[in-house]
Design a protein around this nucleic acid. Sequence first.
DNA 1: AGGATTAAATGACTATAGTCAAGTTGTCGG
DNA 2: CCGACAACTTGACTATAGTCATTTAATCCT
Lengths: 235, 235
Amino acid sequence: MPNERRRKIAQNSLLLKSFSQEIQDMVLSMSSWREYDRGETLFLQGETAQAIHIVTEGWVKLYRIAPNGGEAVVNVFAKGESFGEAVAFRGHAYPVSAEAVTACEVMRIPSVALLEAMRKDPEIAVSVLASTFAHLHSLVSQLEQLKAQTGPQRVAEFLLELCEHEEGSCVVTLPYDKFLIAGRLGMKPESLSRSFAKLKTVGVHIKRNHAAIDNIERLRDFSETDPVEAWHKAQ
Amino acid sequence: MPNERRRKIAQNSLLLKSFSQEIQDMVLSMSSWREYDRGETLFLQGETAQAIHIVTEGWVKLYRIAPNGGEAVVNVFAKGESFGEAVAFRGHAYPVSAEAVTACEVMRIPSVALLEAMRKDPEIAVSVLASTFAHLHSLVSQLEQLKAQTGPQRVAEFLLELCEHEEGSCVVTLPYDKFLIAGRLGMKPESLSRSFAKLKTVGVHIKRNHAAIDNIERLRDFSETDPVEAWHKAQ
DNA sequence: AGGATTAAATGACTATAGTCAAGTTGTCGG
DNA sequence: CCGACAACTTGACTATAGTCATTTAATCCT
């Protein structure tokens, strides 16, 4: 039975937050919950999905191993985020594998719980769709970044997403190790390191797992500039 | 009011095919339908979605313009495919723009039609999720390809998806022009051209808009091999 | 059929990112 | 405080893909 802190985080997730109190309680009472060590596997691609997951602590990565052996990080989820909605609902095979990248806590909502909730209130389906749409949107953004931006620009955008503010300067904490950030951005750790070095010219300084951004607008400008211009600026 | 041919195609779409006859009729009676010339815009990113689209003839591309001006083709849809489910349902802004890449016919299902259908039969939501999941899955595959495969390997995979069979030889028709194929695969037309040239060494020959594949298994082998090995093979 | 227009292929060159190897820094346990 | 280990950075080199210019081929239009 989930404790209070976990309940709260799960209830605030995009998936559950618009449910009525009653349905939230029902769903949560059917859910189980587990801790994972760093590096542990939650599920593998090809397994049949029977549950939706909500991260209540730590970070979980979804990745895919291509037939040629290459790993592609599809997404990394933080506390309060859910994944696997659309798959679990249909009982399909997972198209990705999931692994704990830090020690973490994950809530597991059996798909039958949601199907039952949906029967009580068809509006539930709209919430599930909303979560799924958020994932869809995030994938579309990633595709855009990979196809239309250079490495340093993707890194800039990644940092900007971590910023709380829209302007001025700030210091952000890198949420997970650089190896994983590189994977998430579709590059090798060495390239990430070189991208960071290039960003020095637009006022970004990396120290341990913190990035100091002198001027957020300047960084945004860099990420939104044409690659060839950006190159001149970074000289 | 949709004619018979269009009805049939729409009814066979992943979105509508599992609906009961009655609900299909209701949804279709609320739908409208339009022809577009090549190059015409169906909608632009940022517009509010109020309908789901089903292609009943021709090809439609979804693309996104990055802030730096780069275009990223997110997907290209053929006859019988639907898009925009998750967005329309929520009334969000489209995250992508849509354009006719050939002259085409598109059916427009207002989201209210589906919401009403869902109220009659909550199982409808499962169909919508199924379609959405298919899109999600396709995006995940694309990400994997971009992150973990070389250009020629992506082209090989693209050709394999067009094949009807699993083995032997075959001739496939390139569904749209090379400029668009290049965009879909995240490369420039010149690179696509060079990729085709490399695929000659694994028995692929391009003539006009047809690709002759001598041996499907050999091509699959190429697309699934480690990039460095693939390089030696293609020498 | 023939010239005009567009699509595609090729060549030369550059940039961007990957690879491999060596160095640096930081962390943790004793 | 020191050594061992891991994470990260840097350097040299290579490959892969992008850019720009040019050639070749295909299509269109009277």
